[in-house]
Every structure is written in structure tokens, then in C-alpha cells.
């Protein structure tokens, strides 16, 4: 009897040790996959593109925004981004500059042509909607390893291929998400689908990324991003055209002085 008991205890502890080990392994595997994703996308330098944003209400009404974006890869820190608004007409010429940081708050400025001044956005709130769309600012910010804790969940078929399913828990306490789950295509380690869970852990949004194309024989970029809000029924399409690399932009084009000149 005693023997039996100790055997089962031993078995039990063995099982839990194995469980623990797999959990650790999954976190390690999650991080490894995320690292691979980051590595594969490293070295793109700088890029430019045109973006159309189509906002859709639950009733099917649509509204369109147009903007031009430029991005600069920064080694050892978050990327820098510049967005110039073209439509709607009343915000034409407004320019948005962003310096992402893996752990600290991003720095953000807005150039307002009506005032002819650069204003710093002094807010911790990066969780709000971008231009009234279903994309939060944090959904569009550059992918940094330090922003999340990763956990590998499983492999799953997705689209035409196979995906890693990774759970990402935001490190930022001001994030509006309790977690996000990303489906990364095994061929290029880029997300095909991301689901977002709100602070009460209910499914909030699903992002679908389509029309991936290969640039510079190395970098995969999606051309259509659709964000669907499951709670409000609203959705936003982000259509990206004309991606160009090696545009010759430097860090000087991404500071607040350049912001005033940006056209």
C-alpha cells in the first residue's frame, strides 16, 4: 500500500515536471520563433509606401483616408516612422512622426499646418484608435521582441500552408489587450492572422493580412490588412500600394525639424 502510494506520488511529480518542462519549452519555442521572425526581417533599411484606409461602420457605410508613409530601420532601438496625411482634405499636410522604443514610451509628434507648429503628443495612451479606424496605434507600431512575452501554442494549417500559433502577452500595462494570438506562416514567419483580446479577455478584433509580396528577395510585405471588430461590427481595410525600398532617407528625415518640411 505504502509502496503503491509513493509510486503514484513519484509518477505524479514526474508528470508535473514534464508538464512544467513543456510549458517552459513552449515559452522558449515561442520566443525562438519570434526571434526568427525579427531576424528574417532585419536589414531592410528604409521604405516608403502609399496607404489607403477604408473605414466601415456596422451598417456598411464607408469612409476613406489617404496617407503616405516612410519608415526607417533603427539598429538597437525601435523603428522610426513618418506619416503624411492627404485625405480627408482638412488634415492634408498634417505629418505624424513616431520614434518607437522597445521598452520605453514611443515619442510622437504631430505637425499641424493650420498652426504651422509641431506639437508633441504627451500621452501614455497608445491604445486609442488611429484616425478613427479599428487599428489602434499599438497595432501599427513596429514589431519588437521586448514588447511581449511569447508562448508557442501549436502548429495549424492556415491558408495554403502551415502556421505557428503564438500567444503574445503585452508587457506594457497601458496596452488595451490582455493578449494577442498570431498565426505566423512557416515559410516566411510573417503573420497571416492576429486575434486581439481585450482587458476582460474577450475576443475584440481579428486582423487578416493578405497579398504578401517579396521585396529585395528577402522581405515579405502584406498589401491588404483587414481589421474586424467583433464587438462593434465595424471594420477597417488598410490597402498598401507602391512599396519602395532604398529611398535614400536618413535619420535626419525623421526628426522634428524635418517634420515641418515634410511634404
Amino acid at each position: 500500500m505504502r509502496n503503491y502510494l509513493s509510486t503514484s506520488l513519484l509518477l505524479l511529480s514526474l508528470v508535473s515536471a514534464v508538464n512544467c518542462a513543456t510549458l517552459l519549452a513552449d515559452e522558449a519555442k515561442g520566443l525562438a520563433i519570434a526571434q526568427e521572425r525579427k531576424n528574417r526581417d532585419a536589414g531592410w533599411g528604409d521604405s516608403e509606401s502609399l496607404t489607403s484606409m477604408i473605414l466601415r461602420s456596422a451598417g456598411g457605410d464607408e469612409s476613406r483616408r489617404e496617407m503616405r508613409t516612410a519608415a526607417l530601420e533603427v539598429q538597437g532601438d525601435g523603428d522610426k516612422g513618418l506619416t503624411l496625411f492627404d485625405e480627408p482634405r482638412d488634415v492634408r499636410g498634417t505629418a505624424f512622426l513616431n520614434h518607437a522604443h522597445p521598452t520605453a514610451e514611443d515619442d510622437q509628434w504631430l505637425y499641424l499646418p493650420a498652426l504651422k507648429r509641431v506639437k508633441r503628443i504627451a500621452s501614455r495612451n497608445k491604445s486609442g484608435p488611429f484616425m478613427g479606424s479599428e487599428f489602434a496605434y499599438e497595432d501599427l507600431s513596429s514589431f519588437e521582441l521586448a514588447k511581449y512575452r511569447f508562448n508557442y501554442l501549436r502548429d495549424e494549417p492556415c491558408g495554403d500552408g502551415q502556421c505557428f500559433v503564438i500567444e503574445q502577452t503585452p508587457a506594457d500595462e497601458y496596452s488595451s489587450y490582455s493578449k494577442t494570438v498570431a498565426w505566423l506562416d512557416k515559410t516566411h514567419y510573417q503573420p497571416i492572422k492576429v486575434t486581439y483580446y481585450d482587458r476582460k479577455n474577450s475576443l475584440l478584433k481579428t486582423l487578416s493580412l493578405e497579398d504578401y509580396k517579396l521585396y529585395l528577395e528577402k522581405y515579405w510585405r502584406p498589401h491588404k490588412l483587414t481589421m474586424e471588430n467583433h464587438q462593434t461590427g465595424k471594420s477597417t481595410d488598410l490597402l498598401i500600394h507602391n512599396i519602395r525600398f532604398n529611398t535614400g532617407r536618413t535619420a535626419a528625415d525623421f526628426d522634428t525639424n524635418a517634420l515641418q518640411r515634410a511634404r
Binding site: 505624424f96 510622437q108 504631430l110 499641424l112 506639437k119 503628443i121 504627451a122 500621452s123 501614455r124 495612451n125 491604445s127 486609442g128 484608435p129 488611429f130 484616425m131 478613427g132 489602434a136 496605434y137 497601458y174 488595451s176
Partner: peptide, 8 residues
Amino acid sequence: MYEMSLPY
């Protein structure tokens, strides 16, 4: 500017 500063 205001909208870009508002939280979720």
C-alpha cells in the same frame, strides 16, 4: 491630434 491622444 486629440483623437490620437485618446486611449482605448
